[in-house]
């Protein structure tokens, strides 16, 4: 086999694999659409926004299907978690990359990797038996937006930290040398040279963390309280889209089941919108030195 035919084969295989992975996503979205269709046509999209509450039933006439508080629950928990975990994760990566001695940095990274590997149900159980009673002492019931945000923060912190760390590692060595030659202090180098240079990597890190927070289910079901009402504060219970699907799917029939797929559809749409925003943002302002 000549070299070029080997290359051609490789290209064909890679293209095939790319098509397959792309198709998987398309199929998932199509499946969710098809399954959500009965609810969208019987109940109608407007009722998902205007009904009195979320008390779904298999027949659209007896159930109420307001998804707004649930969508708000997903957005609130995950956005707040990202607001907390984003800066912490970036600072953690700055520490590992520019401040910690090499040996400590190695152990530190391993620790963060370990944190990323803890299954979500373990975080959830810890949240339910330790965190929730603690929050309960401040303000009952304990299952709350706050507990959910804390758990999600812990879960996405390693995602942000590790990806940011990788983004820093991928920067050209010339940046660090140039900064040193200019006599810049370590903090100036980290915060005014490296972070702006790695901006698109940082955006990806935060994005992935946000998407993970939105998709998180088990831990959230255990600590958030899952009441489908507009959250009235940090100590009020919230319900997320994923929690709704997990709690009700086993028992749902007819349009109720279909409405749960509509929840999934909303989640897909929200995630897509966020990803598009980040993509567009990074096109408009390419990182320095690229």
């Amino acid at each position: 086999m000549s070299r070029s035919s080997k290359d051609l084969l490789l290209v064909a295989v890679l293209r095939g694999l790319a098509v397959v992975s792309g198709l998987v996503v398309v199929c998932i979205v199509l499946f969710v659409l098809v399954e959500a269709f009965p609810a969208l046509s019987d109940v109608g999209p407007s009722r998902f926004l205007s009904d009195a509450s979320w008390h779904p039933d298999e027949s659209p006439s007896t159930g109420t299907f307001n998804l707004l508080p649930i969508a708000a629950g997903t957005l609130l928990t995950s956005l707040l978690a990202v607001v907390v975990a984003g800066p912490l994760g970036i600072l953690s990566a700055v520490f590992a990359q520019y401040y910690a001695p090499a040996r400590l940095a190695g152990w530190y990274r391993r620790l963060v990797e370990l944190m990323a590997g803890v299954p979500s149900v373990v975080y959830g159980l810890w949240g339910l038996v330790v965190l929730v009673p603690l929050v309960n002492r401040i303000h009952p019931p304990g299952q709350s937006l706050l507990a959910g945000v804390v758990i999600l923060t812990l879960m996405i912190l390693p995602t942000v930290a590790l990806l940011t760390d990788a983004a820093f590692t991928g920067l050209p060595a010339g940046y660090a040398r140039g900064a040193a030659a200019l006599g810049l202090s370590r903090s100036t180098t980290a915060f005014f040279v490296m972070i702006p240079a790695a901006r698109s990597g940082l955006a990806t890190a935060v994005m992935l963390a946000l998407v993970r927070a939105m998709g998180e289910t088990m831990a959230v079901v255990m600590v958030c309280g899952n009441v489908a009402r507009m959250p009235g504060g940090l100590f009020a219970p919230v319900r997320t889209l994923t929690a709704t699907i997990a709690l009700e799917m086993g028992y749902a029939r007819g349009d109720h089941r279909s409405a749960l797929f509509a929840c999934g559809l909303v989640l897909v749409i929200v995630v897509t919108v966020f990803i598009l925003c980040v993509e567009l943002g990074s096109y408009r302002r390419p990182a320095h030195g690229d």
Binding site: L128, V129, P133, N136, G142, V221, N226, P237, L247
Partner: peptide, 22 residues
Amino acid sequence: QADVVIGDNEQGVKTVAGNLQS
């Protein structure tokens, strides 16, 4: 009018066991 909505029985037991007022 619920304060906490749960899924299975085990979660119910853990929730009540962790909350004196529940």
